[in-house]
Amino acid sequence: MKALSRIYNTLIFLFLYAPIAVLILFSFNDSKSRVVWNGFSLKWYEQLFGNELIMESLKVTLLVAVLSALIATVIGTMAAVGIHGMNRKLKKVFLTVNNIPVNNPEIVTGVSLMLLFVGAISFMNHTFGTHFKMGFGTLLIAHITFNIPYVILQVMPKLRQMDEHLYEAALDLGCHPVSAFFKVILPEISSGVFTGLLMAFTLSLDDFVISLCTAGSGAQTLSVTIYSMIRRRVTPEVNAVSTLLFGSVLILLILVNVMQIYSENKLKKEQRRAGVR
């Protein structure tokens, strides 16, 4: 029985990670072949960093990811605090509305945003004589939009766990409501805000469908570029860029986990020293 479950586990991990391992391995291959190993080389990485199209779209991707994550975190946190303060009925309505884009198929979000942008831009260009077009701006707005619900979902539980009187206690001790938020509420929910930020960042990095719909011709994210590259012919450059993406996300994840474990241990140690169960 035990052997069986071990084999089953091994198979699952094999299916999950073998393709990635192969992808990483062949990013270091000294030939174009994706089947035969010809020796170690970094030439695909060299080519990658020389490829202007990829570097440009990497820049766009990172910029969009950072900006959209930051902006969505600010808006999402404010929204969560607002929703938290609502009465029960209203809260339920808003949380349900918040969940719709999360469960919605991405293609629907993407197409609807594209239609909105096309409509809005043509309206503005007609009425005000401007020369807007789809590009980095619309891409950024789209990413912020789909990131906000995830930030709210990360922050809400932290607000719910918080002692409801903390905010009142801060006011009671003379804090203006705004400074009460920064001095008392934000430190309490900071872990939720931080995971929201990271989640928004990775979701934005990861996104393909919505980016394809909303970027227009003005800007291209990495995923869109890779997609157009593999439509023609897959070169090991794609392996190299995927390896880099995988590696950075992995490091990010490990970092978060280590941080969490560290802070939990610290609290436990302190409590043990103080003799509190």
Partner: peptide, 29 residues
């Protein structure tokens, strides 16, 4: 508003600020 009133409250569940130590809690106001 509460922050302008010359009264202070002791809440039922204390509502101490968990991210601050004892000194910083007392010094808060």
């Amino acid at each position: 508003p509460p922050y302008k009133r010359p009264v202070n409250t002791i809440f039922q569940r204390y509502a101490l600020f968990p991210h601050l130590n004892v000194y910083d809690n007392v010094a808060f106001g």
